[in-house]
Design a protein around this nucleic acid. Structure first.
Lengths: 235, 235
DNA sequence: TAGTGGTCTAGACCACGGT
DNA sequence: CCGTGGTCTAGACCACTAG
């Protein structure tokens, strides 16, 4: 039940409970969750509070509502917005997911006399005993800007956190081209794809506050990622 | 003031007013808008209703709130996006290209008893004697909202121009999922693809100022389109 | 201390979907 | 018809920011 002592807002507690139930599969893809009235009775709260919890989960992409029918669990694990770049770890933590990073390749390469760290990671979430991978990220970092960065453990630490905390470099802007690619042997294995399929890939550069390029980046998105764009039109 | 006859929800009307005032520069970037209490008094509504309007605009990225200080106009996150929403024709004209639209399919269909116009167009540019197609757009328009729209010549006229000029409907926001697809026989022919290839496809909905869905849209991008994203990161 | 947004209650009536 | 979500009222108390 809910803790009404006032420490944590009720709608936050309810969100956590619902999210937990969705993630652990008590409510499955496309199924209805309890109605607002049921939640009101079950947890002894008002409809406003129940609605606030649900609304937040809708905005996070975990639920969707159909007028007159009910509220349903959303299929896709992850929605990528334009402003989600640089927030893989944070994004998952907000959703009570456990982020997982597996380093596939890490070596120092030289492009035109300049040494760089090449880092390839498969990134995903822990689902009980197993791991569902969402993206494969390739990151190429100039060692001039980040001397000694190869010593960090990127399976545990966020590249952007290290940039900020250890080097005082703040990523600010990304320019990425989006492409469609065929999956290869590696992507097939990591994403557990049964047949040949098309995948999304974004490739480009990340810049800091002064406009200096600080990272070449390539991201391959798995089938459980919803790549979403919200655009406001200005006439 | 607001129309309390019950036709249009009050928070929608308030949203429109606030958006108008933001867009026309009455409230500028980084400036506060009136507090919730002021809105309550000015428009004769409850705080819940005022908050709902503001909350929506926050989710759309037009406003942000600071506890204890107020609600502010948001700096534009998106610099530019190089796809065609509301600007295919204009975009090409600026580049001194000659836009071409070929209607592939135009018919009235019914989705759940509601009649809609389905319009499929190949869009591209004229290059000397021949035409290079860039996108294949599928547009599904509710005839309830646009009665008689099937009479227009979409090979010549912009759908969005017709919406605005003939129906007074102003597209404001698009929410699109981006996917990777395999080309089929039709796309292969139109884009002159030599072999089987992967293509980008965006699919979603377009909304007007009141947040009503006015178009279901699907765009397949040919190999000559660079799908580019510029994102600013927020910590 | 005054003003702001954050959370919450306890109701009300309406619009939609399915029986 | 009933149950669902959608909108709205009229209050309450709390937490944060600033003068």
């Amino acid at each position: 039940m809910l803790d009404k002592s006032g420490g944590i807002p009720l709608y936050i507690q309810l969100k956590q409970i619902l999210r937990e139930q969705i993630v652990t599969g008590i409510y499955r893809e496309g199924q209805v969750i309890p109605s607002e009235t049921q939640l009101v009775n079950e947890y002894g709260i008002t409809r406003t509070t129940a609605r606030k919890a649900i609304e937040d989960l809708v905005n996070e992409g975990l639920l969707y509502k159909v007028h007159g029918k009910g509220t349903f669990v959303c299929l896709k694990l992850m929605k990528y917005n334009i402003w989600n770049f640089g927030g893989f770890t944070d994004y998952l933590r907000k959703r009570n997911e456990i982020p997982v990073s597996q380093v596939l390749q890490q070596e120092i390469i030289t492009c035109g006399q300049k040494p760089r760290l090449k880092l390839v990671r498969a990134r995903g979430v822990k689902k009980g005993e197993s791991v569902v991978y969402l993206t494969i990220d390739t990151s190429i970092l100039p060692l001039e800007v980040f001397p000694g960065i190869e010593a960090y453990d990127f399976a545990r630490e966020s590249v952007y956190d290290i940039m900020r905390q250890k080097y005082g470099v703040y990523p600010r802007r990304a320019e990425l081209g989006v492409h469609s690619i065929q999956c290869d042997k590696v992507t097939k294995r990591i994403f557990k794809l049964p047949v040949n399929a098309s995948l999304l890939m974004a490739e480009g550069q990340v810049f800091d506050e002064e406009g200096a390029a600080i990272e070449d980046v390539k991201v391959i998105y798995g089938p459980n990622v919803e790549f979403k764009i919200v655009a406001n039109m200005v006439d």
